[in-house]
Design a protein around this nucleic acid. Structure first.
Lengths: 186, 186
DNA sequence: AATTATAGTTTAGTATCTAAACTATATGCC
DNA sequence: GGCATATAGTTTAGATACTAAACTATAATT
């Protein structure tokens, strides 16, 4: 069975990773740095921590801690202690980090995005995948069971009780859970 | 523009890479080792060399050389000097390497492959991508301009003049070129 | 025979990786 | 409150991965 979806996904992904490595290399960073910048650019304000990155990338927090230290020194990210929870340090892209990421992204994906069928295909795969891995966090707020409609400008997170700006619904969250799933007892 | 194809591809790929890291970690290897095993399992007999891996992954051959040394020591791959070209050492998965790859692949992709639309979507993206990066090697023989029909059991490679077994047309080759493209003078 | 190209190794120095021990803060329970 | 447990992050030691550059050896070109 050389023609099933695993093979094609594998090829697509290995092509993508290869592009990522090249793009990272051109900016003088490594793959994991690109991944971290990418993650920080799409995660919400509950998820921009070392621990979340560690969970997301599946690497030890020790390793991430060291890498973040270097990325701060090189000026790609910024660390701001959380006032509510003094254990936590929130991470943000600096302007340099944003520009670096943008250059890499432009290099990476050169594919026509005016084909709605293509976009649809990708979305479909992503959705099927996420549903199949029923929930291990890191989904978009708008597909989360805690996502509640509020006003026109804001939506409410049922888990934290906070009201979040509308555009954040596309960001990904470490606490994400699909409807019907239970994290602890399932 | 949070909804264009770049974003979705990015999310799909970062999900995939994350899965790869996890799967590799469970087998006690790192991402790059998984990528190498994967590559060696789908490349043809012209492309199973350190140099080709270096080109494919976009990393220096020094780095690849060291990694291959360790992968040989750990019994995942085997090295056989090429008789025709004494500079070349061909690389092969051992049984341990195959089993390791299989375990990782099973862990990684858990997605229904009975949906022809999904498969079609992936293929479409891959093709669009490859065409957009008009050829930098590493495509399947059957889409190569050197691919020539021969007998029922074999096809001919117009570049090397050799006859290759029919099932190899799905493998990827470092010399791959799409129809109409010229490597040197374009 | 000399030049150039290609395949691979080795070296030095840096970055990333894991596992485990560590500090500090938060949470749950009596 | 006081104590156990959980969570966030750092640090350490040692292994692996990374780049750039120098190196050997063989092949192809002139």
């Amino acid at each position: 069975m050389l023609n099933n979806i695993e093979i094609w996904l594998e090829r697509l992904s290995s092509l993508y990773i290869s592009q990522m490595r090249q793009a990272a290399s051109e900016q003088g960073v490594q793959l994991v740095n690109l991944e971290i910048l990418q993650y920080l650019s799409i995660c919400n304000d509950y998820s921009n921590t070392a621990q979340a990155i560690s969970d997301y990338l599946g690497q030890t927090k020790g390793s991430i801690s060291q890498t973040l230290k270097i990325m701060e020194q090189s000026g790609h990210i910024e660390r701001r202690p959380c006032t509510k929870d003094k254990r936590v340090i929130r991470l943000f892209l600096t302007k340099k980090g944003q520009e670096c990421l943008q250059k890499m992204t432009q290099k990476m994906v050169q594919i026509p995005d005016d084909d709605p069928e293509l976009v649809d295909g990708i979305k479909k795969v992503l959705k099927a995948w996420q549903l199949n891995h029923h929930n291990s966090g890191f989904g978009q707020c708008l597909s989360c069971k805690y996502h509640q409609k509020a006003t026109n400008q804001k939506f409410k997170c049922g888990l934290t009780g906070e009201y979040l700006p509308h555009q954040d619904k596309f960001k990904i969250c470490r606490e994400h859970e699909f409807e019907g799933s239970t994290k602890s007892s399932d």
